[in-house]
Lab assay of single mutants.
Amino acid sequence: LYHVLGLDKNATSDDIKKSYRKLALKYHPDKNPDNPEAADKFKEINNAHAILTDATKRNIYD
Rank of each mutant, 00 (worst) to 15 (best):
A39G: 12
L5T: 05
D30A: 14
P29G: 05
K18G: 09
N46A: 15
D14H: 05
N35H: 09
D8Y: 04
N35W: 06
A39F: 02
K43G: 11
I60M: 14
Y20F: 15
K43Y: 15
D30I: 04
I16E: 07
H3V: 02
L7R: 02
N32E: 06
K31N: 04
D40P: 08
K18E: 14
H28G: 12
H49Q: 10
N32M: 10
I51A: 10
S19I: 01
H49V: 11
I16M: 01
H49D: 05
N32D: 07
N59L: 10
T56N: 05
G6V: 00
F42Q: 08
P33E: 12
T56S: 10
K9N: 05
D15Y: 00
Y20H: 14
A55L: 08
D8F: 03
A39K: 14
A39D: 13
N59M: 09
K9W: 03
A55D: 03
F42L: 15
K57S: 06
K26S: 09
L23Y: 05
N46Y: 06
N46Q: 12
L25Q: 13
A24H: 07
Y61M: 08
D34Y: 06
L52H: 01
Y61P: 15
K18S: 13
Y20T: 08
K26H: 08
T56K: 11
K22F: 10
H3W: 07
L1M: 13
I60R: 14
K57Y: 00
G6R: 03
I60S: 15
D54E: 07
Y27H: 15
Y61K: 09
D34L: 01
N59C: 13
D14S: 08
Y2S: 03
E37P: 04
K22G: 14
K22A: 14
Y20M: 05
D62G: 10
T12R: 02
S13H: 03
L5K: 04
K22H: 15
A48R: 00
N59S: 12
A38T: 07
T12F: 00
K17R: 12
I16V: 08
K57W: 00
A48H: 03
N10I: 01
D8T: 06
K43L: 11
I51N: 07
D30R: 09
L5Y: 02
A48N: 00
A24I: 14
D62P: 06
A38D: 10
R58F: 02
K41I: 09
K43P: 00
H49M: 13
H3I: 04
D62T: 00
P29M: 05
I60P: 12
K9D: 12
K41W: 05
P33D: 10
L5G: 01
R58W: 02
A38I: 12
A38C: 05
D30L: 12
L1D: 04
Y27M: 09
D15N: 08
N10V: 01
A48S: 07
D54M: 02
Y27D: 06
N59T: 11
T53W: 02
I60C: 14
D8W: 01
S19Y: 07
Y27S: 09
D15R: 01
K31A: 12
L7Y: 00
Y2K: 01
N10A: 07
K41Q: 06
T12Q: 02
D15I: 06
D14T: 06
D30W: 01
L52R: 03
N32I: 01
K26C: 06
D40R: 15
N32R: 04
T53R: 10
Y27C: 08
D14Y: 04
E37W: 10
D15F: 01
H49T: 08
D14F: 00
D40E: 10
K18P: 02
N10H: 03
T53H: 11
V4W: 01
A50F: 02
P33F: 06
N35G: 07
T53Y: 04
L23C: 02
F42K: 09
A39E: 10
A55R: 10
V4P: 01
T56E: 14
H49L: 07
N59F: 10
K18M: 14
F42I: 10
T56A: 08
P29Q: 05
K41F: 04
N35S: 12
K31D: 11
I16N: 02
K31Q: 12
S13Y: 09
K43F: 15
T12I: 05
H28Y: 05
F42S: 08
K26P: 08
D40C: 13
L25M: 11
K18Q: 11
N10M: 07
V4Y: 02
D8C: 03
N35T: 10
K43T: 14
L25F: 12
L25I: 11
Y20L: 03
A11N: 10
E37N: 14
A50G: 09
N32A: 06
P33K: 15
R58A: 12
Y61T: 14
I51T: 12
G6W: 00
E37A: 09
K26G: 04
A50Q: 07
D40G: 11
L23N: 12
D54I: 00
P29A: 12
N10G: 09
I45Y: 05
N59A: 15
N46W: 01
A50T: 12
E44N: 09
A11I: 00
K18Y: 06
K43S: 12
D30P: 05
K57F: 00
N59W: 05
K22W: 06
T53G: 14
V4D: 04
N46V: 15
D15Q: 10
T53P: 01
R21A: 15
Y27P: 02
A24S: 14
A39R: 13
N10K: 04
K57C: 01
F42R: 10
N46C: 15
L5R: 00
A39I: 14
L7D: 06
D40S: 15
I60L: 14
A24C: 15
N32K: 06
L7Q: 06
L23K: 08
L25V: 13
T53F: 03
I16P: 02
G6Q: 04
T12H: 06
L5V: 00
D40I: 15
I51E: 07
I16S: 04
I51F: 06
E44M: 11
D34K: 13
K26Q: 13
A11G: 03
H28W: 03
T56G: 11
K9F: 07
R58T: 11
G6N: 14
K41G: 04
A11Q: 00
Y61A: 15
K57I: 03
D14E: 12
A55V: 10
G6A: 03
D54W: 00
N35Q: 08
